[in-house]
Design a protein around this nucleic acid. Structure first.
Lengths: 122, 122
DNA sequence: AATTCATATTCGCATACGATTATATATAGA
DNA sequence: TCTATATATAATCGTATGCGAATATGAATT
């Protein structure tokens, strides 16, 4: 993470109270990032993504593994779709979900590492 | 991310509807992780953490840089304290905040990379 | 075309969260 | 001790979010 961020911003601060272009960009990014993170920040949705990080799965599979109600799983998947965290593929009656891109995979991987790897050590 | 996760879980699934110890652990971790992520998932709090990732800062500094109201900054910092994402140090009248641990730093770093580095490329 | 299985959507409600305003605490200095 | 400054907390209120129950869609099978 480069130190550029606040250096530029603090320079602009001396010039006056107007919002600098750098700060403006940073704020837009923060908004995007927080939308992304809000989609992740849910117990069930994290579990869903965790399972999808291994391979694609149908909705029914996910329901069974997590013992969640159909409507619930479907709703959380809809939320994840909305934020483009997952993609779908239809095969007959079933719909298979998988992670949409590598950004999601990276974040899930870090989170998994922080919160699950500790179990291995203990 | 090891494939162990669902392998074990799916084995247990065949034995019956009881919640397996592995799934149980995974669910506890998911709860912890989602609490952690919920604390991050907020535009202002992300910006705060981003600034603190560079160095410690006083509340007033943070207010000025982000042009946010005092109460707002203080409340968001309180939220971050609650989840142990930041620590504080008092120096005279001022209170200096900084990131509490390396886990936060890692996550912020990935998020910064995904949502801010793209600006450099463009 | 009727039924079934898989998935999605809608509705109503309760709860959580954030912004604002006001007030409180704590430290420093006169 | 009185005042000013820095920070924290509380109260209110509007909005968003998740859950449960019910209903809808859509593909496959008879």
């Amino acid at each position: 993470m480069p130190a550029i961020v606040s250096a530029k911003i603090e320079n602009e601060l001396r010039d006056g109270p107007e919002v600098s272009p750098e700060l403006d960009a940073l704020m837009r990014n923060a908004r995007d990032a927080s939308d992304f993170l809000k989609a992740l920040s849910h117990e069930s949705r994290l579990l869903l993504l965790c399972l999808l990080a291994e391979r694609e799965r149908s909705v029914t599979e996910l329901e069974n593994i997590l013992s969640l109600r159909q409507a619930s799983v479907s709703q959380q998947l809809a939320r994840l779709r909305l934020e483009d965290l997952v993609t779908t593929r239809r095969d007959g009656k079933a719909i298979y979900y998988s992670l949409a891109n590598d950004d999601v995979r990276r974040v899930i991987s870090v989170i998994y590492d922080i919160f699950c790897e500790k179990d291995q050590k203990a």
